[in-house]
């Protein structure tokens, strides 16, 4: 029991299980004998975690309840399988629905963000290119891109954060700053971009995403000597890389 408690206190397991509704039941509880039978759980089955869709279909199961290093990837794999099906069955058609209301589209974008449906980054980018896009949807689309943190999503956010329209740039920059640590990987190269606005947007975002202490103000980049600017970029790169190492080890595999 102690091993199980420890596994379910492990940050990898907690992170992998964040999108599941958790519930426990005794194998011998007669109220659930029909459910157990439907899930193929025999009368002598030991402790296990069973992954189920909201409709009651079994996604998989794990008996590795005392070993977080095995349990976390098994939970993540079950979720990825659910998410891929959910995107195909529920979300994909809604992106293409010309009659969808603003609220319906916003709800789909929120679902994409919440479930980290990386497959949908192209659909979200297409929404941003709609003519006359309401600000409410622009905000939701930017937030979805930030939460996905894919290469294409980050690319669009940094371009818009450095764009000529101040209001749009602010919205994109705010969303980008809330991206997961993995997004920083796609921003590091932009610190050396030919375009000063891109460099600044990338710097601002990386320092926020990786919680770099004492970031320089925008004025610093206008006035700093080349040597000091290079030192600052070296410092930020080093801290960002440390932060990404932890992310790649403890979180990225369980997204």
């Amino acid at each position: 029991v102690q091993g199980r408690q420890l596994a379910f206190s492990d940050r990898r397991v907690i992170y992998a299980a964040r999108n599941f509704v958790p519930v426990a039941a005794q194998r011998g509880d007669s109220r659930y004998s029909g459910l157990f039978q439907q899930l193929g759980i025999g009368p002598h089955a030991g402790y296990r975690g069973v992954f189920i869709t909201p409709d009651g279909a079994k996604l998989g199961e794990s008996a590795a309840l005392e070993d977080p290093a095995r349990l976390a990837p098994e939970i993540a794999m079950a979720f990825r399988s659910y998410r891929a099906q959910f995107y195909k069955d529920e979300l994909k058609a809604k992106f293409g629905d010309p009659n969808a209301t603003v609220q319906e589209t916003r709800d789909v974008l929120r679902k994409v963000a919440q479930m980290v449906v990386e497959q949908a980054d192209g659909d979200v980018l297409a929404i941003l290119d709609r003519p006359g896009l309401p600000t409410e949807l622009r905000v939701a689309a930017y937030q979805a891109l930030a939460d996905l943190g894919t290469s294409a999503a980050v690319e669009r956010l940094v371009e818009d954060a450095a764009g000529p329209d101040a209001a749009t740039a602010r919205l994109a920059g705010q969303a980008l700053a809330s991206a997961p640590v993995g997004a920083a990987e796609f921003l590091l190269d932009r610190l050396d971009d030919d375009n000063a606005a891109i460099r600044l947007a990338a710097y601002r975002a990386i320092t926020r995403i990786c919680e770099v202490p004492q970031p320089k103000s925008d004025n610093f980049w206008t006035n700093a000597k080349e040597k000091r600017a290079a030192e600052e970029l070296r410092r930020v790169r080093g801290l960002a890389e440390q932060c990404m190492t932890v992310w790649k080890r403890d979180y990225a595999p369980y997204r």
């Binding site: 157990f36 402790y47 189920i52």
Partner: peptide
């Protein structure tokens, strides 16, 4: 750690409402 409510019907209702999958801990 993760809290484990024990009401399966409520968990199914919650999963349907939020379109999230369920992690059922079966205690042998």
């Amino acid at each position: 750690g993760i809290a484990w409510p024990r009401n399966v019907e409520q968990a199914i209702a919650e999963a349907k409402k939020t379109q999230r999958p369920i992690l059922l801990l079966v205690e042998g």
